[in-house]
Design a protein around this nucleic acid. Structure first.
Lengths: 202, 202
DNA sequence: GTAGTCATGTAAGAGGTTACATGATTAG
DNA sequence: CTAATCATGTAACCTCTTACATGACTAC
C-alpha cells in the first residue's frame, strides 16, 4: 500500500488538490512510484475517510469547487511509521529477463532489437533520474525548496542526501541494466556471428 | 500476462500436473516468475479453455485422479510469439528506493538496519541465481537436461547461453544493489558519524 | 492410524490499468 | 467562441496474495 505513502510524502510538503498531486507524480514521486488519476482520486477519499488527510473545499472561480487535501497529524505519523519499516522486498518478478530465457526460439535480429530497446529504455530512465539527482544536489528543484523551507536548516543536508542516495541507486541499477544488455549484444554476436548491420551506436 | 508464458515454458519440456508445475516454479521458473498454487490451478484451466493446453486425466492409485497438462501446437506457437515480443517494460515502481527518500525522518540505526537487510536480501538472491547459472552452464540441472534431450544438439549451446545470460543479468543487478547499499552505509556514517557497533561484517 | 506428500480447488480482497465520463475556468 | 487546462470522478477488468478447504495416497 505504497501509493498511500507516496501521497503522504507529497502532501507533507504542502496541501494541494488531487490535480496538483498528479503533476508531482509526473515529476518527482512518479520517478519511483508512478500513479494515474484513476488511482489517486479514490485513494484521496479513502485516506480522508481513514483520518490521514483532511480536505477543505475551496471555490474555484464562480461555480467551480476543488478539494484541497492536507496531512492530519495522523497522516504525518503514518508517513513516519512507514519510513521506519524494513525494506519492502516483495517477490521480484522479472519479465524482461524471463523472456530472454526463451531466446533460443527467436531470430538473432529480434534478440538484438530486444537488447537495444532495453538499453534505450534504461538510458532514458537513467537520464530522468540523473537530472533529478542533479536538481536535488543543487537544491534547485522547486518542490525540494518548498520542503526545505518547512524544515530546520540542520536537517537540510540529510534530506538532500537521502533523496540523492535513492536516485543514485536507481541510476546504478540503470547502469547495470545497460552494461548487461551490452554484454548480451556481444554474446549474440558470438553465438550467431557478428551482425552485418553497421551496429549504429548512439 | 506472463504467468501464462511461464507455464508454457515449463510445459514445453514435458507434460505434467499442476502439482509438479509448482515444484518447477520453486526451482527454476520461480527465479524470475514466482507463482503460488492459487494462481496456477485456475490459470491451467483457463489455458485449457483457450486451447493452449490439453489435459489428460490419469488415475492415481485406486480412486485418485490427476490432470496431466501438455502443450498444444497453439500453446507452442503462443510461447514463440511471446518470446518474439519486445521487452515488457512496465512502469517500474521501486518501493525499496522510494522509502529511502524519507529517511531523514528515521533514526540512523533504522537506516543502517535497512541497508543491511537489503544487502542480505540480495546476497541470498544472488546466491540462488548464481547456483542456478552454474548448474545451467555445467548442464547439470535436471530440468535443463530434459529440455536439451528434446532438442537438436546444434541448438544446445544457444539454449544454455540464453538461460545463463538471463541469470547473469539478475546477478549483475544483485551486485549493483549490494554495492549501492554498501555506499549507503558509508553515507550514513558520513551523515551521522561512524557507528559504534563493530559493524559486524559477514 | 497417522503423518507427510500428492493433488486440486475456491473466496475475499488489495492494487493497478484502461477507458469512459463530466463539467468549470481561463487564455487567446 | 474555442481550445487548453483545471478538476474530479466511475466502471470494467486483470493480476496477485492470503486464507480456507478438501480429499486421496504412501510410508511408517
Amino acid at each position: 500500500m505504497s501509493l498511500r505513502h507516496a501521497i503522504l510524502g507529497v502532501l507533507s510538503v504542502e496541501p494541494m488538490t488531487g490535480y496538483d498531486l498528479l503533476d508531482y507524480f509526473d515529476i518527482s514521486a512518479g520517478l519511483f512510484w508512478p500513479a494515474g488519476q484513476a488511482q489517486i482520486y479514490p485513494e484521496l477519499r479513502r485516506m480522508e475517510r481513514d483520518g490521514l488527510l483532511a480536505a477543505t473545499v475551496a471555490p474555484r472561480g464562480k461555480r467551480g469547487k476543488k478539494r484541497i487535501y492536507a496531512l492530519t497529524p495522523g497522516g504525518a505519523d503514518e508517513l513516519r511509521r512507514w519510513a521506519n519499516e524494513p525494506p519492502p522486498h516483495g517477490p521480484d518478478r522479472d519479465p524482461v529477463r524471463f523472456k530472454v530465457t526463451y531466446f533460443d526460439q527467436t531470430e538473432p535480429a529480434h534478440a538484438r532489437a530486444y537488447f537495444a530497446a532495453h538499453i534505450e529504455h534504461y538510458r532514458a530512465r537513467r537520464a530522468a533520474w540523473a537530472e533529478r539527482a542533479d536538481a536535488i544536489r543543487a537544491r534547485s528543484a522547486t518542490f525540494l525548496r518548498a520542503r526545505l523551507a518547512t524544515r530546520d536548516p540542520d536537517e537540510h543536508e540529510r534530506i538532500v542526501a537521502f533523496k540523492a542516495l535513492a536516485l543514485d541507486g536507481a541510476i546504478a541499477r540503470a547502469d547495470a541494466e545497460i552494461a548487461w544488455a551490452e554484454r548480451a549484444l556481444e554474446e549474440i554476436d558470438r553465438l550467431y556471428g557478428v551482425s552485418i548491420s553497421p551496429s549504429s551506436p548512439r
